[in-house]
Simulated scan of single mutants.
Amino acid sequence: MTSSGLLVFGDRERVFDDVPPPYQHAVRRVREQFDRDAFHDAVDDPAAFVFFGVAPCNVGVDYDWGRTPAFLGRSIWNETTERFLPIDRAEQVFERLGLPPLNTFQKEVNVRDFHPDRYAIPDSLWYDGPAAGVIVENRRGGSAVVENATVAEHSAREPIRGDPKSVANTVVTDTRLERAIDAVEGRGKPVTTDEVQARVFEMCACEEYDRLDDNRFDWDGLRSAIGSLVGVRLGERADT
């Protein structure tokens, strides 16, 4: 966050000038939910804090997207003290700011009792199956990931190929359209083609990423095709 209160987004490698399509769904949700007033009231220098989290995206695990949060807060770095906030404190901050924290499976595990090679990966909260992995953290901010190899082995889906119009016809489902309409209405906005189209595109880029991601994929073409299709669907909906 900048000193003026502007939220700045990035990934492990860079700060975004233009947010890539798979992250746009998460960025929208953070911007809508982040309680800037509460944050400014709680700290002296908003620009001193960096928020880390997970933006669930379909890279092989098909979550229950209707209930999976677009962003899950993980940790908070304080540039002034050059330390991460304690885990419990970070969870409280995320909740106060209106952002769900990453779900915790277990706390206060003695290092002598933890064996990564024998650790049983628990079930995920966000789909009917095991978690893709578990982040293990210590109180000093160090962390490691225990990955679930069995999830990666069974996660491949057939890619979606074709021109943007045919791809749009495949990915713009009734369920996604209704979710987008509900989201627009939930923000107290009129249900326009632009508002719904933006959300449907963001859902598709996130939830179908493993089937759409390709260096030559025409994201702009898909955005336009989804806009046209959403306009038709909304017109049909209004006539019924």
Rank of each mutant, 00 (worst) to 15 (best):
T150G: 01
G98I: 05
A152Y: 04
T104L: 01
G98F: 07
I160C: 05
E158M: 06
P100Q: 07
A120D: 13
V134A: 14
N110V: 03
F94Q: 12
D163N: 14
Y119K: 12
F94C: 11
R112N: 12
R96W: 10
E95A: 13
W126V: 10
E137I: 09
A152W: 01
V93N: 06
D123N: 14
F94R: 08
A120G: 05
I87P: 03
V145K: 13
V146H: 11
R157D: 07
G142S: 09
D163S: 14
I87E: 11
L85H: 12
V151A: 03
N148A: 08
P116Q: 02
D88C: 04
S166P: 00
T104G: 01
R139E: 12
R89E: 13
L102S: 10
R157N: 10
R118Q: 13
G162I: 01
S155F: 10
H115Y: 08
R161A: 15
D88E: 10
V151W: 00
P116W: 00
A131Y: 10
E95M: 06
P159W: 00
R161G: 06
V151N: 03
A152I: 02
Q106P: 04
L97H: 05
V145G: 00
A149V: 11
A120I: 11
D117E: 15
R140N: 15
D117C: 12
P116D: 03
H115S: 07
